[in-house]
Amino acid sequence: MTTLRIRDAVKRYPNGVEAVKGVSVDVGDGELVVFVGPSGCGKSTLLRMVAGLEEVTEGEIELSGRVVNALEPADRNIAMVFQNYALYPHMTVRGNLAYGLRNRGTPKPEIAAKVEEAARMLQIAEFLDRRPSQLSGGQRQRVAMGRAIVRDPAIFLFDEPLSNLDAKLRNQMRLEIKKLQRRLGRAAIYVTHDQVEAMTLADRIVVLNGGRIEQVGTPTEVYSRPASTFVASFIGAPPMNLVDAQLDDDGLQVAGQVVAHDSAHRGPVTLGIRPERAHLVAGGAGLDIEVAVVEELGAHRLIHAHLGGHEVTVAQSADEPVPAGRMVLSFRPEDLHLFDRGTGVRI
């Protein structure tokens, strides 16, 4: 079953700017879909269209089998967690959690039960009578999630909920969100610009760029078979090395060197290789490169090297000897990604 179906959604502002240019995505029952992309790619706008906070210019949003385009946010059976928490500062935590239910006319005993349950689940029971201003960032985030949980929605919408937390807390909360979502078994959309969050949380990732979908797939698919140079450079840290190359009858021409390649494609291409899939060896088959800078990161290190006029990054374990001078960049043929140089689309 599908919880949410977005069909050809377009968002056009009165001044003619198109933030979302015809996007179709399905979110299955219990599935966590992450919208990821750089700022201004339309991911938040798309989420807000689902929430009903932005009007849909064209297309349809169908939630649990009914088109919700014309419905108010409160009538859509959604719950949203905001980036800045958006807690009501003058209400206690209990008041914050109960507010939506109270407005719906839920009976008081039922509200109390739901609030208690959510508070227990999120370990905020002891803060129920405090004001948001008396809570830490992480606790506020929990309250914001609690407010979403008590509504018992068909789908959870997360709008960069962790971006205001420090790095350590962010990792911890990320895991908790995932556990919670699994436990509740509800569909969720999670918007972020952080590709690490996207990779770790998602059942499926939707990579957006300039109001269009670049690729939809599981984290593994998006990582190992990026559909375009944009996805290739956006997903993965450090980003994939992209080098101009030429395919002809001899193989792949890179910076004056030739590597055997069995592609039937001919012409200018962009060659992509992940830093963690490339190796530096003293000799053998591969591309000659010149090591420039070595960055030690503890468990592993990054080596920045020159390949012709291009800079190439290689990641290797810190156990390996530190490379220096002229080395050979070696890789398995299946780890090479080829993209059309003009369109950036995968070949």
């Binding site: 009903g52 906070l53 946010p73 409160a74 719950a79 800045n84 958006a86 003058h90 407005n103 407010r147």
Partner: peptide, 29 residues
């Protein structure tokens, strides 16, 4: 007053009158 507060209130089912009396007025005290 942050826009998110208005949006959260909309999702919580507070119409213009409720938002005014239950959110904005207490915030403005």
């Amino acid at each position: 007053v942050p826009d998110e507060l208005l949006e959260a209130a909309r999702i919580d089912g507070a119409g213009p009158v409720r938002f005014f009396f239950e959110i904005l007025v207490p915030l403005s005290r």
